[in-house]
Design a protein around this nucleic acid. Sequence first.
DNA 1: GCATTGATTTAGACTGAGTCTAAAACTGGA
DNA 2: TCCAGTTTTAGACTCAGTCTAAATCAATGC
Lengths: 130, 130
Amino acid sequence: MLADPIQTLRDHGIQPSAQRVEVARYVLDTDEHPSADRVWEVVRERQPTISRATIYNTLNLFVEHGLLRTLLLSEGHVVFDPKTNRHHHFVDEATGRIVDVPWDALDVGRIDELPFEVADYQVVLRGRLS
Amino acid sequence: MLADPIQTLRDHGIQPSAQRVEVARYVLDTDEHPSADRVWEVVRERQPTISRATIYNTLNLFVEHGLLRTLLLSEGHVVFDPKTNRHHHFVDEATGRIVDVPWDALDVGRIDELPFEVADYQVVLRGRLS
DNA sequence: GCATTGATTTAGACTGAGTCTAAAACTGGA
DNA sequence: TCCAGTTTTAGACTCAGTCTAAATCAATGC
């Protein structure tokens, strides 16, 4: 539950306009990993005049301010993830549903032996939800 | 080096038209992880009349026949990977370059403890090439 | 060599995700 | 109330990926 979306936005240097607050209420509190158009669909239920450009602008603003991360897990569109702490993802190939996997549920060894400067990594799993 | 693209296509149940052979020569023998438009750019050097629809049709055909895999590693487009054996990927955030990481270079533990039927997984790393 | 048939390619229209822009609307301070 | 700065809006635009009708190609049979 996002306790105080207005304060959350202010804490991240974002002016809390009515539109941004409604977007935040949903996207910063969901584990759906929605697309931008899914966000628009949901927020329009509560705020019918909100425009598609505002949705894209607001999502991109939240990403820039560290409130959201973009993920490339679905074909054809990016998805948004409010959990900014490290974790893995499972993608159900039947439904497209994306599920967070706790960081400590998997052990990943020998990253430091690779000849790269690794800034970030995650395990992406695909299959079927049991 | 792709020794015999014509035979490779025949072995995978694909009629080896001149266009498909040229696409195969490049895309089944590169470690670039190219986009569809990059494939078109390269193949057009050798075969200037090939159309963009043929490129997409041919890449999709190769995916269907197990010669290629699609990957969601770059924003804005899918990339194609001829290595169909399991491996991980590193994405250079500065250049966008994608590098294969051998399967055995990393240890991933406790996949079987997850509450999913996992069909496939890989580690996706991002950072800078040293 | 020609006709026929089935497969493939082509050119470009189309769709949808994501971006951009000018005008309108909003908000806060004076 | 006015003004300046910010935000939102409506829709045009770009580009990745798909679709389609017509053209082309290739193989086969006569």
